[in-house]
Design a protein around this nucleic acid. Structure first.
Lengths: 249, 249
DNA sequence: TCATCACACATGTATGACAAATTCTCGGAT
DNA sequence: ATCCGAGAATTTGTCATACATGTGTGATGA
């Protein structure tokens, strides 16, 4: 199994193609971002990853090292690789209160970045990027109508907006933040579809305001709409926390 | 050389102590952030790093993988490890114009984050954090008076402010941005001390406004002062670029 | 029932080998 | 002398194996 990474000459750049490490890393990153592994979950062992991806442990370890440095996973010798869990209820409650807010921490730093991204996107978007944003928006609507999770599509939309800034750092920033980007996804059970649908439609409307502003090249309106959306997310998340506390404690 | 990483039991946590990978990674990260290696520079080869740090190549490679994922370095097979160079004049000019602005790109995403950080720091700083900020400020003044580079001290001040938000993500963000954080450092030659000193004193004054506002717990003033500082940096950097262009082209 | 210990498993590090890409060097042809 | 190309040296990419160290778990025995 020596010359495994031989083929692939043509610059397939764009995803994780340049090296095996990039490919495995992107694969794991997507698996985490898409919610395949929730916060606190244990990833397959290095040995298993070695087999499922048909690469050596070296490659797996380097890929994991990258995730670790991005704060996406936490590796414990002898135990395994775990998706970072800001929620103390899931990961041993040693850090009792200082870490409770970590989902909010992510939201806190995301807010200024995404507001700026929306403003810049309004000023700089190309027609293709505008179309990509609308496409994501439609996708979310489709998910709502077919009653699927909007988690992935929601993330895609935000990434699409970041991409429309034409400053690659914005996209990179979002992708580094991990599963906490769409925080509520790992808290809400899949129940209460009526309430759930209303909630999703509200998000959809907030998105719409952002997108229309970007389409109109109105950067101030885009900033305001994005601010409202994120502040709304923050409020919704705080309410969720409150509900959870009244259940558990 | 088998049992090299045996010692070090006591939890020396705080820097890169938990694992050899963390130690080497932090060491390299600091070397880059402190300007020991400028953008475009080639780092020592993996073999050399193996010897200087007395670790195996495994460890070096994992540490470098982390830097790579943070966008701090770029690794080219057969060539070496290079500090990310946004400057097309230093790294082959294949990406002719799309990448010219990358220093500005960093500034562009830093701006909203640091403005928010200043505001949060004003609201949340502890007395110890306030003191740390003042200490950095004094350090910069000392550098100016003794005519040393303020690069490192400047970076430290910004990190100290980020730390005073009590949201670790802000610090992590700054440390991930790399050498481009203090962009002018690799453009200005060490000459023209008169003009240089005036320039540094201006920066010092801008810092002062930020710090006073944080000390006063006036978050709006802190935001405004930080905004002014960063906008000023951006303007100064654009001027530098213009000067350079008139020289080279 | 409960404490203890052994063992399986998981990650951490070291070492050596070969593949593949780049750079350097040197000798030959013009 | 200059240009050029072949090959050597260097450097990163990947694989395989071995051993060290930390974790969890279940069997064992009091």
């Amino acid at each position: 199994m020596r010359g495994e990474g031989v083929a692939m000459q043509g610059k397939d750049r764009g995803r994780g193609s340049g090296s095996l490490v990039s490919r495995v890393g992107e694969s794991l990153r997507q698996a985490i971002l898409s919610g395949q592994y929730a916060a606190g979950d244990k990833l397959p062992s290095e040995h298993e990853l070695t087999e499922t991806h048909s690469v050596s442990r070296t490659v797996v370890r380097e890929a994991v090292a990258a995730l670790r440095s991005d704060g996406l996973v936490e590796v414990r010798q002898g135990a395994g690789i775990f998706v970072i869990s800001p929620d103390p209820a899931l990961s041993g409650r040693k850090v009792d209160k200082a870490r409770v807010a970590s989902d909010l921490e992510v939201l806190e730093i995301r807010t200024p970045v995404e507001i700026e991204a929306a403003g810049l996107a309004a000023l700089r978007r190309s027609p293709a990027q505008e179309e990509a944003i609308f496409e994501c928006h439609r996708k979310i609507l489709h998910c709502i109508e077919t009653d699927q999770s909007i988690r992935e599509a929601d993330l895609e939309l935000h990434v699409a907006i970041a991409e429309a800034t034409n400053n690659p750092l914005f996209k990179h920033f979002l992708e580094s933040q991990g599963s906490a980007i769409i925080p509520q996804s790992r808290l809400v059970p899949e129940t209460r579809t009526a309430e759930q649908t209303a909630y999703r439609k509200l998000i959809h409307r907030e998105h719409e305001a952002i997108i229309v502003a970007i389409s109109d090249r109105d950067d101030q309106a885009a900033r305001n709409a994005m601010r409202e959306h994120l502040v709304g997310s923050q409020a919704r998340y705080r309410n969720l926390l409150k509900d959870l506390r009244s259940f558990t404690s």
